[in-house]
């Protein structure tokens, strides 16, 4: 049966991905969770805007961009602290985290200015 074999393949693929992901270090998993949280918040706002209309458009933009910005910064952090990434092996993770904090402060400063 073609259909059941496809389902089986998908299950096998899903299992292999899950077992591969289980090997990921915990700090990266925490970052992943954080990224998922930010993206889903952004999606909720887009759906809300589609329902209510774009009236305080600056508020909408700052709300969504704060989520997107956070997600982007978190992904950047994830790239820099990943041990398997040879490109950043000279960069200490403390330095990467300090960069992340600084960028976040700037981002939220801008967002606060644009929100009202």
């Amino acid at each position: 049966m073609a259909k059941s074999s496809a389902t089986k393949d998908a299950q096998a693929l899903f299992h292999s991905l899950r077992s591969a992901y289980a090997a990921t270090p915990t700090n990266l998993k925490i970052i992943d969770l954080y990224v998922v949280f930010a993206i889903s918040t952004a999606l909720i706002q887009v759906v809300y805007m589609a329902l209510v209309g774009s009236f305080p458009f600056n508020s909408f933009l700052s709300g969504v961009l704060s989520c997107i910005g956070t997600a982007v910064l978190a992904v950047c952090l994830r790239i820099q602290v990943n041990k398997e990434n040879k490109e950043f092996k000279d960069l200490p993770p403390e330095r990467a985290f300090a960069d992340f904090v600084l960028c976040n402060l700037v981002l939220h400063l801008v967002i606060m200015n644009f929100l009202g």
């Binding site: 918040t41 909720i44 009236f55 305080p56 700052s62 709300g63």
Partner: peptide, 11 residues
């Protein structure tokens, strides 16, 4: 603005 509260909340 009341309609913008979700955006404030998200930020």
């Amino acid at each position: 603005i009341t309609a913008a509260f979700p955006y404030y909340g998200a930020s």
